[in-house]
Design a protein around this nucleic acid. Structure first.
Length: 586
RNA sequence: GCCCUCGUAGCUCAGCAGGAUAGAGCAAUCGCCUCCUAAGCGAUAGGUCACAGGUUCGACUCCUGUCGAGGGCGCCA
């Protein structure tokens, strides 16, 4: 509808330009907005005010000229000039009455569009290190990323969802070593677990699997493991040196193949858990992309060679540096360490190069806000490689700050002290958790009160929206029980009977839905949809309380029933996009 | 010290590429079920949009500065 008015005004502008009333270059796609106050009609445009300066004419005079040039349309009832030069458009009854049958005919597709024209977009999100179960911080990225992906798909993009698996690197070695040490403890060895090891219960579980399946085949004496290892932090040493020495010792004592086995056991167990967890949270991926595969395929070396070829690398203190400052980064970055190992950053360059080589028109990364300092160097690398950095969009999601009993909950994966996503899901349910997570702008800090989310979950707005859906279902349940027949053909209904203000505002809200989807998708702002659904549910609940649907006047009854049928469809479509269920009963 | 994000009602947040009187939800007070689910509805009250300048027909929105909150600044991942 908005689009149609936009076209009408554009045509008028072209006519004015042809008549020399406004300069040719002043023609632009007019901004058509919904009005806040119904007294101002349904839509308004400020075009006349914007044109006042280039046309050197008073805004109201221009507005009148614009109206005179406006093509006729049965969409509009009235067009008025108001205030300093706004043009207000009031939709005709015909436009309103066309809406309900349109929604019912389009069903699941109402609100969808082909705006994206099938362009390929990759959305990479969560990508948490597989060193432990996902916690509630990851949950926000999971909910946000998956809804952004769904929204983009809804407006016609070809979306590829991807999880980047950090299955290489030191953190994974720390995990493997942690598992092995716990295993040794299960073999009745006595040892002091490293301060920097992973201490969560899941590490015990993996160790127990190893012990169950292989008994003492991987056993070594604790003395042999710890002999000559530098002291840990509580003993006055350095915890990093301590754990690194333990990793080296583990590799040597176990040998390559057996160390690999423990490593893989840890990785696969945790990855399976993450996959399962996300799937139950309604988050699914097209691809799980392995960091290790980048090294193995030679992609990392290829990226480094390309940087070298473009003269962006130099050696300093035995390491290989990328001159990212050439592209606005605040300092240069190491890609190959003095010990010959490539850095995580080198993998990331290769990964992003690969993303663009795969032919995506647009690449979206959803990162935790703590990684924001990382954005300039990745963009710098893409630019250095001759790729277009503007194809990469990094969306930063602020961490949720958890509160329990009014106090901030400190979280650390290493110490095993965190609330897991799985716990949250079990306590408040996937629906409430997902809705809650995307209710706020991603860059907004979020206070997540666990006590509130867990104990008083009925306060959660998701129930308010779901309740509207269930209530509508219930009305039709009642109709069936009372054997009330109603018109089955939406086009045969007389929508002119919907004259109540509550009905008008409900119709207006329903008409807004496609605009909301488009805006939420283009701005990557799922919260627009949650807010919209709240308003729509509010319109319905208000209507429900003010008027009865199952009445004797059959014509009016038919009109009302079709109106709430359309409402149910839109609520369902919206919840579906958020990955939230639309229950028929509550 | 430098960089990023944020500062709107008692609390949690909206406010859409600047637009017509700043909006919700909790919490507070008062009402509404012989009637399609009260997980609901209505009403009242609550604001120098952190502060100071600037840009213009017009600023919560854009720019600069100050103050305040959180985060980031490794040959870690």
């Amino acid at each position: 509808m908005k689009k149609q008015i936009e076209q009408l005004v554009l045509t008028a502008l072209q006519r004015l330009a042809a008549d020399g009333v406004i300069p040719q270059q002043a023609i632009h796609t007019p901004k058509i907005e919904r009005t806040r106050d119904p007294k101002h009609g349904d839509f308004a445009t400020n075009t006349a005010m914007v044109l006042a300066k280039p046309a050197r004419k008073p805004p109201r005079e221009l507005a009148q000229a614009l109206l005179d040039a406006l093509p006729a349309s049965d969409l509009l009832e009235r067009c008025d000039i108001a205030g300093p030069g706004f043009i207000n458009f009031t939709l005709s009854a015909a436009a309103h009455h066309r809406l309900v049958p349109t929604i019912l005919a389009q069903g699941h597709d109402y609100g969808r569009s082909d705006l994206g024209k099938g362009k390929r977009v990759q959305v990479e999100f969560v990508s948490a290190n597989p060193t432990g179960p996902l916690h509630v911080g990851h949950g926000r990225g999971a909910a946000y990323g998956s809804v952004v992906a769904d929204l983009l798909e809804a407006i016609g993009f070809d979306v590829h969802r991807e999880y980047y698996v950090n299955d290489a690197g030191r953190q994974m070695d720390i995990l493997a070593t942690s598992v092995w040490l716990r295993y040794l403890e299960l073999c009745d060895e006595t040892l002091t677990f490293p301060a920097n090891g992973y201490k969560g219960d899941y590490v015990w579980d993996i160790a127990a699997t190893l012990h169950r399946d292989h008994r003492e085949a991987y056993k070594q004496a604790a003395e042999a493991v710890f002999d000559g290892i530098p002291a840990d932090e509580p003993d006055g040493g350095d915890k990093e040196n301590h754990i690194d020495a333990l990793i080296d010792r583990s590799k040597r004592l176990l040998g390559d193949n057996r160390y690999r086995f423990v490593f893989e056991l840890g990785l696969n167990t945790i990855l399976d858990d993450i996959r399962d967890d996300l799937s139950l949270f309604g988050v699914n991926y097209d691809e799980w992309y392995s960091e290790r595969s980048l090294t193995e395929s030679g992609a990392v070396n290829k990226a480094i060679e390309r940087l070298r070829a473009s003269n962006r690398l130099y050696e300093k203190e035995g390491a290989l540096w990328f001159r990212s400052t050439d592209f606005g980064d605040e300092k240069d970055r190491v890609v190959v360490r003095d010990n010959g190992q490539t850095t995580y950053f080198a993998s990331d360059i290769a990964y992003h190069m690969d993303k663009l080589e795969r032919g995506f028109d647009r690449v979206i990364d959803v990162w935790g806000a703590d990684h924001h300092g990382y954005v300039p160097r990745v963009k710098a690398a893409l630019q250095a490689l001759g790729d277009d950095p503007s194809k990469l969009d990094v969306l930063l999601v602020q961490f949720a700050i958890l509160y329990r009993g009014g106090e901030k909950v400190q979280m650390s994966t290493r110490s095993g002290q965190f609330v897991t996503l799985r716990e949250l899901r079990k306590e408040v349910g996937a629906d409430a958790a997902r809705f809650f997570y995307v209710m706020r702008k991603c860059e907004q800090h979020m206070d997540f009160d666990l006590d509130l989310a867990k104990s008083e979950s009925s306060d959660n707005p998701v129930y308010y929206v779901q309740y509207a859906h269930a209530r509508i279902c219930s009305v039709f349940q009642q109709a069936a029980e009372q054997q009330i027949r109603f018109e089955s053909e939406p086009n045969a209904v007389d929508y002119g009977r919907l004259s109540e203000p509550h009905e008008q505002s409900l119709l207006t809200s329903l008409a807004k839905y496609p605009e909301i989807i488009e805006s939420a998708a283009l701005n990557e702002e799922p919260h627009q949809l949650t807010h919209y659904l709240r308003e729509l549910a509010n319109d319905f609940h208000t209507y429900y309380n003010a008027h009865k649907f199952l009445i004797d006047d059959t014509r009016l009854r038919d009109a009302r029933l079709h109106l709430i049928l359309a409402t149910r469809q839109v609520v369902r479509n919206g919840l579906n996009l958020l990955g939230v269920t639309a229950p028929e009963k509550m």
